[in-house]
């Protein structure tokens, strides 16, 4: 009952046979072993599974792998350019925007989309933009600063 999908992930095309019910997040984690995308809630509430689909941030537990057929996915593993970190990755490091690191990939993917649409967000806009992502460690304080760091660097 498996069906074929062809999904480009971090610039590389993968042709796989998958169960129609397989969620995109399980495709990434289990079929491709890209375990940087995390599962925190099963109800699309926590944002730990946020990836980019054709350049837009999306919770990968919200869609099926078959719905991503023919599309292009970017995960946290695809954000750095070789050894050169993405400004958001650098920002999270420099501003201590992470503690346990579990929500971090989703935060970074969400923030990357946010900054694409609004390169110079206010603190209020950043906080509003992060509304779909839970962090239980940082109280969000340093996540806001991390995104401000990246916005400045990318300007």
């Amino acid at each position: 009952m498996k069906v074929p999908v062809s999904i480009t992930v971090n610039g590389k095309q993968y042709d796989k046979m998958v169960e129609p019910r397989l969620l995109l997040v399980y495709f990434l984690r289990e079929e491709l072993a890209l375990t940087g995308t995390h599962i925190g809630c099963d109800t699309s509430s926590c944002g730990a599974c946020t990836i980019h689909l054709d350049g837009k941030a999306l919770k990968s537990c919200t869609m099926l792998a078959v719905q991503a057929n023919g599309k292009s996915v970017t995960t946290i593993e695809g954000m750095a350019n070789g050894e050169e970190l993405h400004p958001l990755q650098e920002g999270f490091h420099m501003e201590h925007g992470l503690q346990c690191g579990f929500c971090t990939p989703g935060m970074i993917m969400c923030a990357a989309d946010m900054l694409k649409n609004n390169p110079n967000p206010s603190e209020e806009e950043i906080r509003h933009g992060l509304e779909g992502n839970f962090c239980r460690c940082t109280g969000y304080h340093n996540i806001v600063k991390s995104i401000q760091y990246a916005a400045k660097k990318m300007a």
């Binding site: 890209l34 375990t35 940087g36 995308t37 995390h38 599962i39 995960t75 946290i76 593993e77 954000m79 750095a80 970190l85 990755q89 999270f92 490091h93 420099m94 201590h96 992470l98 690191g101 579990f102 971090t104 990939p105 970074i108």
Partner: peptide
């Protein structure tokens, strides 16, 4: 700055699952 950050910000943290 934290030395453990690199693996987490690049998606290489290794959690049980």
């Amino acid at each position: 700055k934290r030395v453990e950050d690199k693996r987490f910000i690049t998606g290489q943290g290794r959690y049980t699952d």
